[in-house]
């Protein structure tokens, strides 16, 4: 039945729909909005099943409930929708991220701060946002929205600074928030010696596509968590190379 409609126009329409849906799903991952997507998938699947089985009463109920569901979505996710619309206005639809030079500049600032924090054995937890939204974690901390500099990073993680506890989130060239709560990893394969900072770093990398840099306050060792995997004891040069490789993808 589908093949009957298949032509160039159809393929083009489906590809556009696919890109829009994919962008929405990716930006909602790791936020409360993920439940919204799950809800929509359950409703659409149920609707098709009820239609196929000829269950008219259930189909009717579902169709009418769907209208209510749309209103509920707008009310509950008003802040997320507002942010998404603002982003849509600010960025190109096919926004790919920062330029190579900008990425290098940001990474130099981060690595410089991390190496100084490591030398001073000052604990730090830094998350670099990639495609997935980190709004839930940003909301748990203190909003900063400042330009990223090595000095500011060092200042935030100073043991006497009020925001040094918890994680810091970087989005592009901005420090978005500090003192954020990251989820702890529930993996049973982690070394027992790993502290809460490392577990939080790994936890966030399991729940999102963020790159998480951890500086141990015990020995000053620098680690990087990507997709739930921790790479430890990195030199500044190692860190820079890995981050460059990950962010230029």
């Amino acid at each position: 039945m589908f093949l009957r409609f298949l032509n160039l126009k159809t393929v083009f329409e489906i590809i556009i729909l696919w890109i829009v849906i994919y962008r929405v799903v990716v930006s909602l991952q790791g936020t409360k909005g993920a439940y919204l997507i799950r809800g929509v998938i359950v409703l659409i699947t149920s609707y098709f099943i009820f239609q196929k089985l000829g269950l008219t009463v259930l189909s009717w109920l579902l169709t009418n409930f769907f209208a209510f569901y749309l209103i509920i979505i707008v009310v509950i996710f008003q802040p997320e929708l507002r942010e998404a619309l603002i982003k849509l206005g600010q960025r190109h639809i096919f926004y790919k991220g920062l330029g190579k030079e900008e990425i290098e500049k940001i990474l130099r600032e981060i690595v410089s701060a991390v190496s100084i924090l490591s030398m001073k054995k000052t604990g730090a937890l830094i998350a670099l946002k990639r495609e997935m939204g980190l709004n839930d974690y940003i909301e748990s901390g203190v909003l900063i929205n400042a330009d990223l500099t090595s000095e500011l990073l060092q200042n935030i993680f100073h043991p006497l600074a009020p925001l040094h506890d918890g994680g810091l989130i970087i989005d592009g060239a901005k420090i978005v928030a500090a003192s954020c709560l990251f989820p702890h990893s529930e993996s049973l394969n982690l070394e027992k010696t790993l502290g809460m900072r490392h577990r939080s770093g790994i936890g966030l990398s399991e729940h999102s596509d963020a790159l998480v840099i951890i500086v141990s306050e015990e020995n000053g060792h620098v680690s990087l968590a990507i997709n739930g995997q921790l790479t430890g004891d990195l030199t500044p040069q190692d860190l820079l190379t890995i981050l460059k490789g990950q962010l230029s993808k």
Binding site: F2, T10, E13, I14, L17, W18, I21, Y22, V25, V26, Q29, I41, I44, F48, E131, D209, K249
Partner: peptide, 24 residues
């Protein structure tokens, strides 16, 4: 890059495609 383009977020891409076809 082409391999990563397909495999990165593979399941999200697949579910999005199924959703897009269903909606269409």
């Amino acid at each position: 890059n082409l391999k990563e383009l397909i495999t990165y977020n593979f399941w999200v891409k697949l579910i999005s495609l199924i959703l897009a076809i269903s909606v269409w």
